[in-house]
Nucleic acid binder design. Structure first.
Lengths: 239, 239
DNA sequence: TTAGTTCTAGTCATTTTGACTATAACTAAC
DNA sequence: GTTAGTTATAGTCAAAATGACTAGAACTAA
C-alpha cells in the first residue's frame, strides 16, 4: 500500500506523487596523496547498480525510514554502505531541484561527515565502493558533483573559523599534522611558526606529555583536542 | 490516488506512510520597539485554524508542490500568507525529528527571509496573521520555538561575519542605521566611531551624495549597498 | 662528529582593534 | 541671533593580532 509509488506506479503517476525523500552523505577523510604523499581529502563513493545513472559513481544514500531521525538515517546509511561510524556528522543542505532525478522527483537531505584516518583505513572497499580524491572527481550521478563542491566550500569555511580540523585527525596529533590538514583543505602553505602560535592560543588544544617518536628528526610533542563538535539544532551539546 | 495519505488514511496507515514534506519560513524584519522606539527584530506568524495545535501561532508554511523548487515553494508560501516578496531568502535547516507533529511524520525544510522595513509595513496583518517580537515569543505550535531560536542564532552568526545587515534596511541608509541593526541583532552597544571605521573599510558600501534631512541634528550621509546576497547552492551569484 | 631536518621560541614591523577626544553641522530653546 | 543640545565625523593612542623572519634545540643519518 505504501509502496505503490516505488513499485507499481507508472511515470505519469509518479509525476503527481509527492516528492520522495532521500538521505545522502558526503564523507571526508584524509589520505596520503599518491604523488606527494602529503595528506589530501578523499571521499567514498558507491557505484549505482540500477537506473538511472547505472554504473556511475554516486554519494552513499538511501530512503528515509519512518522510525529514524534524519541524522540517524544518515548515520545508518553510512554504516551500511561503508562500515564507517563517524564522530562528526552534520546536516549540509536539502537539495530539491525539479530535475535532479530523471523520472521521479527526489528531495535529498544531504549530511556531511568527517572521519579519522584510522577509521577510514578500516572502511569497506569493494567493487562497488571506492575512495576518490575530492578535488579530482569525474562525472558523478545526479547533481552529486555540485553537492560535493558545496560540501568542500562549507568545509573550507568552517576550517577558517572553528575547530573542525581535529575531527579529521586521531585522538593525538602534532601541531604539524594540524597544519597539514589546514594546508590540504585550504590549499595553501602556512608558516609553521605563526601557525603554531595561533593554535596554541586556542584553549581547546591540550598539551600531552607524549612525543611522537620514529621521525627522522626532532620528535614533536603530541596534543589532544578537548572541544565539542557542538553545532546545529540536532546535535545539542551533551554535558 | 496520490491523496490517499492526506485524506482517507487512518492513523495506523499514516504511521507507515512516507514522511510528508513541508516548507516553512522564518521571516525577520525590523520594527521599532514599543518601549524604546529603537529597531528590534519582529517576525510574522499565522494562527493555526485546524488540529493539531489549533489556535496556536505557527510559522507560515505549507506542503511542497510537485512543480516548484524548494526555494520557490518558500517564496510562494510567503507571498500567499503575508504578501511579502523578500529579496533575501535562504535555506535554514531541514527539521525531521520523529515527533514533531503528533499524528503524521513531517519533515520540514525551513527557509529564512529578511525583508526591508518598507516591505514589512505593507505586509498583510489580520486576525490570523500577526507580527511578534522575535525575542519575546510565547509558546508556538510544533517545534517552532526551537526553529526560531536556531534562525536567530544563524542570523547573529552571519551578522558578525558577512554583509547581511543591509537586507534589513532600504536601498539608502545611514551608518547609524546600520549600527542600530547590528545592535538590535547582537544585543549590545557598539562604539559609533569604531563601527563607522569598520564599515567604511568594506568596499561594498558606497557613499552617495545625498544626506538624510529632517533629523534634529547634523544630517548624516546616505550610503548604498552594492554587494550580492550570493550564498548557498541554490542562489548562484548572477553576474 | 657532522650535516640535515624539523620543532620550537622569539623578534620586529605592520595592521587591526578598542577606548577615547575633538571638531563639524545641524535643530531647538531662549 | 546666540547658545545649548545632539549626532556626525575625523582623528589619536595604546593594546592586541598578524605576517615575515631569525635562531637555537633536538633528533636522525651519514
Amino acid at each position: 500500500m505504501n509502496t505503490v509509488y516505488a513499485t507499481s506506479a507508472n511515470v505519469a503517476e509518479r509525476r503527481l506523487a509527492p516528492p520522495s525523500l532521500a538521505i545522502s552523505t558526503v564523507i571526508f577523510a584524509l589520505r596520503p596523496s599518491e604523488s606527494s604523499g602529503r595528506p589530501t581529502l578523499w571521499l567514498p563513493l558507491v557505484r549505482r547498480i540500477r537506473e538511472p545513472f547505472k554504473d556511475m559513481w554516486a554519494l552513499p544514500g538511501g530512503p528515509l525510514q519512518h522510525d529514524e531521525s534524519l541524522q540517524d538515517a544518515a548515520s545508518r546509511n553510512l554504516r551500511e554502505t561503508t562500515g564507517l561510524v563517524p564522530q562528526y556528522l552534520e546536516q549540509l543542505y536539502a537539495f530539491g531541484g525539479l530535475h535532479r532525478s530523471p523520472a521521479q522527483r527526489v528531495v535529498s537531505i544531504v549530511y556531511w561527515a568527517l572521519v579519522q584516518p584510522t577509521e577510514a583505513a578500516l572502511a569497506d572497499e569493494s567493487e562497488n565502493v571506492r575512495w576518490f580524491r575530492a578535488d579530482r572527481l569525474s562525472e558523478l550521478a545526479f547533481d552529486h558533483n555540485a553537492i560535493v563542491d558545496y560540501a568542500l566550500w562549507r568545509l573550507r569555511n568552517k576550517m577558517a573559523y572553528g575547530s573542525i580540523a581535529y575531527h579529521l585527525l586521531g585522538e593525538f596529533f602534532t601541531l604539524a599534522q594540524v597544519r597539514e590538514v589546514y594546508e590540504a583543505v585550504l590549499d595553501r602553505q602556512l608558516d609553521p611558526a605563526n601557525f603554531r602560535r595561533q593554535i596554541k592560543g586556542t584553549p581547546e588544544i591540550e598539551e600531552t606529555g607524549e612525543y611522537l617518536q620514529g621521525g627522522k628528526h626532532r620528535p614533536p610533542r603530541l596534543y589532544r583536542f578537548t572541544g565539542t563538535p557542538g553545532l546545529g539544532p540536532d546535535n545539542r551539546s551533551t554535558p
